[in-house]
Design a binder for these strands. Structure first.
Lengths: 316, 316
DNA sequence: TTGCTCCTCACGTCACGTGAGGTGGC
DNA sequence: TTGCTCCTCACGTCACGTGAGGTGGC
């Protein structure tokens, strides 16, 4: 290093010994430390030479430049590290495995939805599920999101942890994407995670969870499903799910009570939606609630018509 | 780039046109993309050559190595960026100004307390106060901390914001260092910040703040100062500060009441400390409280003796 | 006499970039 | 005929590191 600085003329030893050894004075040593100090900030030797030759030569401009370059490097290295970790976690068998993940990541990060779509649909057996999971949480395009959910469901439960973590996001959009994605994944783990999502502060998240989990026979979905009927949000589907749940005799009464409790409302439209939902319940229960409703002037005719439907179907 | 890969034998065009132009086949192009893919992960061209020649050649070992190197680079760049920002914020006039800050930072980060001490004491006019502020919040050695507080106070209020931020730290040690450092800084800003610190959850922080702020005439310090007398923590100093505060007639009664309220305790030692503190109050107030205490068997003799002291001093 | 440190000179590293001088296809 | 692209060859970049062959002081 000292020989190099000497050759460049950056730090020249003041003297030489008899044996031609370089001999550095106090000043030479100080200058060497100055060079080291500026090098530790990332200045090139040429820049250091200029700085030491003309100390007033715009330190702030060069510092600003160094800061910007360092920020850029940091950003790039952070992205690189994330990619490297993702690839390492996928434990590629050989370098072609590495390349498949690199291409997938490249495609999924494309600003073009068409490219992202293509990346998801490119057949590949060993796509790491957590890559798909992270992508599905960030995907804004509905078609690409659909393809990602399909790929994720096909990958089995391997991405569950990652998508489930999305349910803890502060970003409501991420939670919504997470709940929709998990709804497409079968299995008890997914069901458990979705059951937790019934408590989400966001209505949309809760309703997605209730539809998914109700279909899977989870009774805890009932309050949200009833609420969907009251609000008129996917009320037909909610009613059907409640109907399915009520096939279990132990649950039918609970569901009937939950629906009947809401009939106290003064909103006729709501009462009519509830009456329609009651039709999905087992015949004997549906009949008794509808008969009661026939005493209610506002909905008597609808209730009567609905009861005709109930009475006409084969007993179950 | 293509010529370079050709020269290295990394990607050789399959053919040449009549005019000797390189002609790349589909496979050549694929291979080029593979090279680009692996380069984006930070592999050298030599490593890429090996990987493509023998795809099974330990991807995980190389990936682990790349991850480690990238982590190291990130760490170093983060530290570099912080240093650069500190230096830039100090707006050095010339490159020697830059070097002074570099040396200061280097010294303050030394694991040796002696080196840190020397770095602080090295005379330097344009030391950026926020550097000292950050150092004082982290300094464990009491001597170095003392030198830093002195340097910080000498630098004026420029480091205030940084040290004041230390009072919001979750680390109680940082808050303690902050309150001690700010106590050494004169001025209204420091006083205001210290007054806020009277509400700190940590007793030590509150008491440091009370001593500093009481000396500066802030009446809000009274409850903490009284508490120090009750607890016997720097009670003599706390009493003196209360005495100073009580020179203002409008405040004397408030302070007398605060002390008298605590006399209800059953702890004789506490009552004696309170009696001693009362001596610091203006004569007429001190006399009446001590006379009252003389009716109290446990402390009558002490109170009587103290009243003799009070009576014997020149009226004020 | 024997290690040891230092000397000079020349070349290598890494992934290209940059001319100079020349040429084929439109 | 005139641009344009591509060709080869040689050298530069950046901050040193690495021999090879030689030498002075203990």
């Amino acid at each position: 290093m000292l020989r190099h600085y000497d050759a460049l003329g950056l730090v020249r030893p003041t003297g030489r010994t008899v044996g031609n050894y370089r001999e550095y004075s106090e000043d030479d040593i100080r200058r060497t430390f100055h060079v080291e100090g500026l090098r530790s900030l990332g200045l090139s030797l040429r820049q250091i030479g200029q700085a030491l030759e003309d100390p007033a030569f715009a330190p702030s401009a060069l510092l600003g430049d160094l800061i910007r370059r360092t920020e850029d490097r940091l950003q790039r290295d952070q992205e690189l590290l994330e990619r490297l970790r993702t690839i390492d976690a996928s434990a590629p068998f050989d370098w072609y495995g590495v390349l498949r993940v690199v291409e997938l990541l490249h495609g999924l990060n494309s600003p073009s939805a068409a490219n992202r779509q293509q990346a998801v649909l490119t057949p590949s057996d060993d796509v790491p599920a957590d890559v798909l999971a992270r992508a599905v949480l960030a995907e804004e395009d509905p078609h690409v999101a659909g393809a990602l959910r399909w790929a994720l469901a096909r990958a089995g439960g391997d991405g569950m942890a990652e998508v489930a973590a999305g349910l803890s996001s502060n970003d409501v959009d991420v939670r919504r994407r997470a709940v929709v994605a998990i709804s497409a994944i079968p299995g008890d783990t997914a069901t458990a995670v979705l059951t937790d999502a019934l408590e989400d502060p966001d209505t949309t998240v809760r309703r997605h969870a209730a539809r998914a989990v109700g279909t899977r026979g989870v009774i805890a979905a009932v309050p949200v499903l009833v609420d969907m009927i009251v609000a008129g949000a996917n009320d037909v589907e909610a009613a059907e799910i409640l109907g399915e749940l009520s096939q279990d005799p132990g649950r039918a009464d609970l569901i009937a009570t939950a629906l009947a409790d809401e009939l106290a409302t003064t909103d006729t439209a709501v009462r009519i939606r509830l009456a329609q939902a009651v039709v999905e319940l087992p015949t004997t229960i549906a009949r008794s609630i509808l008969q009661e409703l026939e005493k209610d002037d506002d909905v008597a005719r609808v209730a009567s018509a609905l009861r005709t439907v109930v009475e006409s179907r084969p007993t179950n």
